[in-house]
Structure formats: structure tokens, C-alpha cells
Write a protein that binds this DNA or RNA. Structure first.
Length: 129
DNA sequence: TGGGTGACCATAG
DNA sequence: ACTATGGCCACCC
């Protein structure tokens, strides 16, 4: 994280405007919105569910833009595959991510989620098509 | 046009 | 258990 990301609203242009990202980003946001309170998932799990198993980084990018989405996106429920709060520095305050999780009954120690395996919510399992 | 950089992950050794 | 590596692909110089 070296540069301050410039707001890039073009990411969220409607699909009708021909923005390639809008559909993917929006899909990501909608999946994240389905994560129940008190549960967590990973970037990779979301990517896999959306059929882009090897594009987990793009999910991270989507999270980066999630605060500009018109609907609420609980980005704090998405961590990396080890349960580490790798995205905490992208919140308003670094401590916010942990605070939001704590409010939902998810305990965090040393930036990593306790009982991660137990709380893990896999969209591929939970959202059978 | 091209290269560097990620809120990542699977695999290999 | 640990590090290294390659793939991914949108974004930004």
C-alpha cells in the first residue's frame, strides 16, 4: 500500500454503460452481502464461487471499491484464507475491522480470527445453485 | 505499449 | 513447518 488510491467511480458504472468490471464487482458485493452476521469467508472462496478461482486478487480489488457501492457491503467479514485480517488497513481506522467483527461475536487475536474454521462460511457450500 | 503492483491462492520443494 | 514461485487481471503510471 504505497499510493493513496484515487477514487475511481468508473468501476461502478452500470453495466448498461458498458463497464466490464461493474458486473463482476457487483456480483462480489452481492455475495458478500449474503454472509450471515458472525460468519466470515475468504477472497478465494468468493472467487471460486463466481467461477474465477484464480482471480482472488480481483475480489480484493472489489473490496477496495466496496465502500462506494450503493448498498451496504460488510467487507469486514472477508479475510484471507488463513483467517488473517489482511484488509484492516483499508478501513477508516485499522481497528475498525476488528471492532465490527467483535460486535458480531467474532473474536480476533493478533489480527487473526479465532475459531476461523468453525465460523468459515463457504458460498460454494451454502449457496447451492 | 509495457511494466510494476496488489485486502490472494495453490503448489512445489 | 516454511519460503519461493507463478498465475491471475484491473489499475496506474
Amino acid at each position: 500500500m504505497k499510493k493513496k488510491p484515487k477514487t475511481n467511480l468508473s468501476l461502478l458504472k452500470p453495466i448498461s454503460a458498458g463497464n466490464r468490471n461493474a458486473d463482476f464487482f457487483e456480483l462480489v458485493f452481492e455475495v458478500v452481502r449474503l454472509i450471515p452476521k458472525g460468519r466470515v469467508t475468504s477472497y478465494g472462496a468468493i472467487a471460486k464461487y463466481l467461477g474465477m478461482a484464480r482471480s482472488a486478487r480481483m475480489v480484493g480489488w472489489a473490496m477496495n471499491a466496496s465502500h462506494t457501492y450503493k448498498k451496504y457491503v460488510p467487507a469486514h467479514r472477508v479475510v484471507n484464507r488463513t483467517g488473517l485480517l489482511s484488509g484492516k488497513h483499508h478501513f477508516a481506522r485499522p481497528s475498525l475491522m476488528q471492532e465490527l467483527l467483535a460486535k458480531e461475536g467474532v473474536s480476533v487475536r493478533k489480527d487473526s480470527i479465532m475459531e476461523f474454521k468453525k465460523l468459515f462460511w463457504d458460498p460454494t457450500e451454502e449457496l447451492k445453485l
